[in-house]
Simulated scan of single mutants.
Amino acid sequence: MTFSNRISPGSIRHSFQNFTAKAVKNKRGLTVAAAAVVAVSAVVTPVVVSNAYAEPAKQAAGPLSEVVKGSPIAPMALQHTAAQDSFDALAVAQITEQQVQGRADVTQLDSAIAALKSNYSSDSTTLHKLTVAADNAVTTANKAAVEHDAAVAAAQKAAAEAAAKAAAEAAAAAAALAQVNTPDGARSYAQSTMASSYGWGGDQFSCLNSLWNRESGWNYQAYNPSGATGIPQALPGSKMASVGTDWATDAATQIKWGLGYIAGSYGTPCGAWSHSQSYNWY
């Protein structure tokens, strides 16, 4: 049987008001009436408290009247108020526990809920302490849930920014590759690389341009039946793997290997071009 099936806050308040009125008229009946209040309060147990109960319960309880405060039943009225507050705290704690699952540690909430359920008939002082503990547990759980949500949002934002940055870098790399893989792009890359890596100027580039125009037309996909491959016509093409595994698809890798080969074998592009003019190969 649920709490709402046993007795409603409205009926408790109505009975309590009737009792107070009668107590004013007949003070000799206070003892009997007090016993009746105890009997009514005894059946109110916080087995299940619905979400809609909390606020009506607070309104139904109301402040103690001056008559009740000065009467022998004041302790029972105080007990009744403490019980109502504990029921409210239990309802809020149970709802909060459901809402923050997976977003906060509910250990403190579980303990507070269990304590309220097992001490609903305790004295008002104990109920007050349990109610305060439950309220504190709710505050702590809600704060933890908010912090969890903020951390998740920050992580998602960081991941999105990192993904966007990676995508932008990949797009830039793809654009650069597409550019260098054109004959004009390959020439531009070769001229800047030979200047920065070997100190060769425009005269040496003129020789290089003539050499690789003859060998491949600056086409990174050039292939000779002999097995010579790419812009520098490496034989075999797999030699260029010493510079990069992308030697078959990236003109920049081929150019780096070709410049290194020329420097090691002929000293300069003009030396390689001179040899090519004499022997038709280099």
Results as ranks from 00 to 15, higher is better:
Leu127Gly: 03
Ser41Pro: 00
Ser238Thr: 12
Asn18Glu: 13
Leu116Arg: 05
Ile12Gly: 05
Asp123Ala: 09
Gly185Asn: 09
Tyr266His: 15
Asn51Met: 04
Ala35Phe: 05
Val47Ser: 14
Gln221Phe: 02
Ala190Gln: 06
Gln79Glu: 15
Ala162Gly: 01
Val44Cys: 14
Val37Phe: 12
Pro225Ala: 12
Val67Gln: 13
Ala21Gly: 10
Tyr189Glu: 08
Pro236Trp: 07
Ser118Pro: 07
Gly29Phe: 02
Thr20Phe: 01
Ala82Gln: 05
Phe16Asp: 10
Gln277Arg: 14
His80Val: 07
Ser265Met: 12
Thr2Lys: 12
Ala144His: 00
Trp281Thr: 13
Lys58Phe: 09
His128Trp: 03
Thr193Ser: 12
Ala141Tyr: 02
Ser226Asp: 13
Ala35Ile: 08
Trp273His: 06
Thr140Gln: 09
Gly62Gln: 10
Ala150Gln: 13
Glu66Met: 08
Ala54Ile: 01
Ala160Arg: 07
Cys207Lys: 08
Asn280Ser: 13
Ala114Asn: 12
Ser242Leu: 04
Leu78Asp: 09
Ala52His: 06
Gly271Phe: 03
Ala168Met: 06
Ala163Lys: 14
Thr253Met: 05
Val47Asp: 12
Gly267His: 10
Ala252Leu: 02
Tyr282Pro: 07
Asn51Thr: 12
Ala190Ile: 08
Val44Trp: 13
Thr107Phe: 00
Ser278Glu: 10
Ala170Ser: 11
Glu97Phe: 04
Leu127Asn: 07
Gly10Ala: 15
Ala170Glu: 13
Gly260Asp: 07
Phe19Met: 15
His128Met: 01
Gly29Leu: 11
Ser41Trp: 08
Gln99Thr: 06
Ala158Arg: 10
Val106Trp: 00
Thr140Lys: 07
Leu109Lys: 00
Thr245Arg: 12
Ala36Tyr: 11
Ile231Gln: 05
Gly244Met: 08
Asn5His: 12
Ile113Met: 03
His80Asn: 12
